[in-house]
Simulated scan of single mutants.
Amino acid sequence: MMLLKHRMEKDRFWNDFWHPPDELILEIGAFGEVLIAKARVFLCLVCIAFPVFMYFTASPREFWIAAVVFLIAISHALIILKMSVSGRRRSWPKYLATVVDISLLTLVMWALALSDEPTAALNTRVVEQLYLVMIFTTVLRGDYRQTILAGLLAVVYYSILIAYVMLFTDVAQATALQPLGYGSVNLGDQLSRLVVIVIVTVLSVVVVRRHIHLIHLSCLDPLTRLFNRNYLDMRAKSKSGKTSKPDKASVMLMDVDFFKKINDLHGHPVGDKVLKLFAAKLQDMCLISDVICRFGGEEFLVIVRDESAESVLQRANQIRKLISETRFKACSENQDIRLTVSIGVASIPKDGGDLNSIIKLADERLLAAKNDGRNRVYGCDHDMQ
């Protein structure tokens, strides 16, 4: 039994690994990416001290290497910052940023390895420890695949650098000539640094997975496993933020008609089962890109992106018809329960400029649909039965 459970946990980990983060994690990870992008620009500006230092203390060749690396780093940082604040939640720029961050740092270490003091590449504390900083900052993205990628790149790059310095440079002569005192290279010390990189990577992955788990606990409804009001409030704030422009979106706010009668006739356990079945049915009828929330009690809200208001209104009416035709098997005595729903629909930019305003308008239209007899859809001057 324990072996089967272990295998199931292992299979779930690898299934999760190959699938991108869900809508909630992408939304929160977008904020983390902006923080990382700003920190990257700040760090690059601080690192201008390296080419300045090289200009006064090193050869012209070493100065130009440091200057080119700095120009590449600051250009990369500004481009990623612009992409991260654009509001588009795409995965590939984050992977590209991770690869370039680790590669640029490694390029600096290679520049030191090819200088007159190759031991500086392995014994300089600041540059090597930036590997650990870059690995741990990937936690803010909420995607542990990027953390694993950063850790693997750091281990591979640093291992190759160790092999080069110890096998293809005259370490003893460089140690005798170096003016800054970087010391000798010890294989045991270098292997211990690789172990530290691996440990930081593993701990960062654990932190990301725990972070995702806590987010899901706070933003998922425990009964239906749909998003809850907490998530909806977070999403509404992000959509009305200064860095994001209102996009083309619609909401369908629906209420299960006369749900109190189900609780009164069959009891709350049956009512809970009906809500779970209804939530599952609603997920089947919606698109993968739709965001489904339990708005409260027997009310549910669906956020639809990149569709016209007329198309969303037609979809809402189709949902209403399919729900009325569905028989929910929620009673122990095999008695089917029939449901109907009333739906209010509102859209951006037709009915408002942000998510909060169209949710409020959809709520007013839902109330009108219930007052006019229920089992109907109300949109912009439309009554569909």
Rank of each mutant, 00 (worst) to 15 (best):
E307H: 14
A346P: 02
V304Q: 09
I319W: 06
S308M: 10
V345R: 10
L322V: 03
L355R: 01
R320P: 05
L322A: 10
T326N: 09
T326P: 02
V304W: 06
E325Q: 15
N334R: 06
E310W: 03
D354Q: 12
S308Q: 09
S311P: 02
K329S: 13
A346C: 09
L313I: 08
E325W: 01
L313F: 04
Q318K: 11
Q335M: 05
C331E: 07
R305I: 05
K329T: 08
T340M: 07
E333P: 00
S342I: 08
G344F: 05
I343H: 08
D336V: 03
K329A: 11
K350I: 12
E333D: 14
E333H: 08
A346N: 06
T340L: 05
I343C: 12
G344M: 09
V312R: 04
I358F: 01
V304T: 15
S332W: 02
A330F: 01
N334L: 09
S311M: 13
L322W: 01
C331F: 01
R327A: 13
E333N: 13
D354V: 04
I358W: 01
I323F: 04
N317S: 10
I358R: 00
N317Q: 09
S332D: 07
L355V: 09
N356R: 15
L355C: 09
K329F: 06
A309F: 04
E307S: 15
K350Q: 15
L355H: 01
E325Y: 06
A330E: 02
V304M: 13
E325S: 14
E307T: 10
P349N: 08
R320I: 02
N334F: 05
S311T: 14
S324C: 06
L339G: 03
R338I: 12
D306C: 13
Q314C: 08
S311G: 05
I348Q: 00
F328Y: 13
N334V: 01
P349A: 07
I358V: 15
K321P: 00
V304Y: 09
V312D: 09
I358H: 00
Q318I: 03
A309E: 15
K350S: 09
I337Y: 03
E310Q: 14
I348A: 00
R320K: 12
I319K: 07
R320A: 06
V341K: 05
A309L: 04
S311R: 10
Q318T: 11
S347G: 06
S332K: 10
R320Y: 04
E307M: 15
Q335W: 00
L339C: 06
S357V: 14
I319H: 04
A316C: 07
D354W: 04
A309V: 04
A309R: 08
E333M: 01
A309S: 15
A316P: 09
S342R: 07
G344T: 12
A330Y: 00
R327P: 01
N317E: 15
E310N: 13
R327I: 08
V304R: 12
T340P: 02
I319C: 10
